[in-house]
């Protein structure tokens, strides 16, 4: 029997975390089993701990100055490049969605297309949101007065559980397009598309630390992010337990984080609006006298 006739043994991937542009294992050494929609084993995935969350926050903080200081045009270009690379991973995402979400090939294909299109949509916002969300203010006096949106800072995102790619992109892209840096906790039962996205990001022009992705249980990691004093905002999108969400919102009050409450809208809409961008934008108003 020739080699080509033998069933080839697949080389499996080790799924790790994505922090500061690298792929570390969890410092806790823990993993958990990601299963397909039929309950069959897919992979062992690194399971993030409190320490991993803190490392991810420091990486995101370190990256904030550069990313928020980059020109919006540059951010838009860098994010658009990610979309180009997502196209190249289409098959991989599709098979992960088929396995993880239990959708058929056409449904998975549609979700991948929608996710890529959504990424492009937000990439295009990077250099437009200031004009739409800022203002020139007609004050009653000899002053030039204008207001501009600026990113809030480091934003923690607890991604939706069910929509593991489109949902993820829908909560992540608005945060980074506006110049924030992000720490994402991916869908606990369906972490693989997030990890594939991490591989795309690692080879893209997005600087390390701008997007950090933790696989793990949001009930375990989320509260640490909610109470972390160097996190400026938190999106509770994927927190389905109301008591847990309330506890995290309470913890977030310690440093008055900007909080987006849990929401599981239909992700496959044509126009998601700007309401996932504005909560993580601060308005800065600048005054200067006018005179000779």
């Amino acid at each position: 029997m020739s080699a080509s006739e033998r069933a080839r043994l697949e080389v499996r991937k080790t799924y790790k975390l994505f922090v500061g542009g690298s792929f570390p294992r969890s410092e806790s050494g823990r993993t958990y089993e990601a299963l397909d929609s039929g309950g069959r084993f897919l992979a062992n995935v690194a399971r993030a701990s409190r320490k991993d969350a803190r490392d991810a926050v420091s990486a995101a903080r370190k990256a904030f100055g550069g990313w928020s200081g980059a020109t919006p045009y540059n951010r838009g270009q860098v994010l658009y490049r990610v979309a180009e690379m997502l196209e190249g991973r289409r098959d991989q995402f599709r098979s992960q969605l088929e396995a993880g979400e239990g959708v058929d090939r056409a449904g998975a294909d549609e979700a991948v297309s929608a996710a890529i299109d959504r990424w492009v949509w937000y990439a295009g916002w990077a250099d437009k949101i200031a004009q739409v969300h800022g203002s020139a203010n007609a004050v009653a006096g000899p002053y030039f007065d204008f207001s501009l949106p600026e990113p809030t800072g480091v934003v923690a995102i607890l991604a939706p559980r069910d929509s593991s790619l489109l949902g993820l992109v829908s909560v992540l892209a608005p945060v980074v397009a506006t110049g924030n840096t992000a720490v994402v906790v991916s869908s606990y039962p369906r972490p693989l598309p997030a990890m594939t996205l991490a591989e795309v990001l690692a080879t893209s022009d997005v600087p390390g630390g701008v997007i950090n992705i933790l696989a793990g249980d949001l009930a375990e990691v989320g509260p640490w992010l909610a109470s972390h004093m160097d996190v400026n905002g938190i999106d509770l999108a994927g927190v389905e337990d109301p008591e847990l969400a309330a506890a995290m919102e309470q913890a977030a009050a310690d440093n008055l984080k900007r909080v987006l409450r849990p929401a599981l809208p239909a992700w496959d809409v044509d126009d998601p609006g700007i309401e996932r961008m504005t909560p993580f934008l601060e308005i800065k108003t600048v005054w200067h006298p006018i005179g000779v």
Binding site: N137, V139, A140
Partner: peptide
Amino acid sequence: RFDPTSPFG
């Protein structure tokens, strides 16, 4: 300086 047209916060 304060003005009703000018966002403050």
